[in-house]
Amino acid sequence: MEKNYIIAGFGGQGVLFAGKVLANAFMLAGKNVTWYPCYGAEMRGGTVNCEIVVSDDEVSSVHKQDVDCVIALNQLSFDRFISRIKKGGMLICNSSLIEEIRPREDISYIFSPMTDKAVDSGNPKLTNMVSLGVLSNEETALNVEILEKAIDIVLPEERKKLAKSNMEAIMLGIDKLVTA
């Protein structure tokens, strides 16, 4: 069973970092995983995304046209990736920055005011981590313990002190307030 995820947002929203945490988390959960960033031309206009492919077997390919799950942290990403989601796939949206509309009927949506939650918690930069919390509600392979360990792996030595606030943001995402 192979599944792929795209996390997308503005540069500065911590998209690649969140992707690395997610990839490490899946690795710790015993999955095969590949993380692939956009680079160069794709990054024009200030949007950044990365793809994470997770499989029980060998990961077949990356840079896939069809996506199982998209985490959109801003409106631009919502607009860009909604058409690439597979039928029956999922779109997780940061409703603080994305209008709550459902243009496609064949996919499921989760709207969560991630940036508002991050602001409330005192650190608007942690929108990315809130989104991982939201995703972990949907993924049986992910849990708090694994995500905590993944954050520890990804944070470089000099930034380890940020682990606590990152985990707090994930917990805010796990706390289901607005779903649909």
Binding site: K20, A23, M27, N32, V33, T34, W35, Y36, P37, Y39, V59, V62, H63
Partner: peptide, 10 residues
């Protein structure tokens, strides 16, 4: 290739 250079895997 650029794909391999940029991707992360265990």
């Amino acid at each position: 290739d650029g794909l391999l250079g940029q991707m992360m895997e265990p």
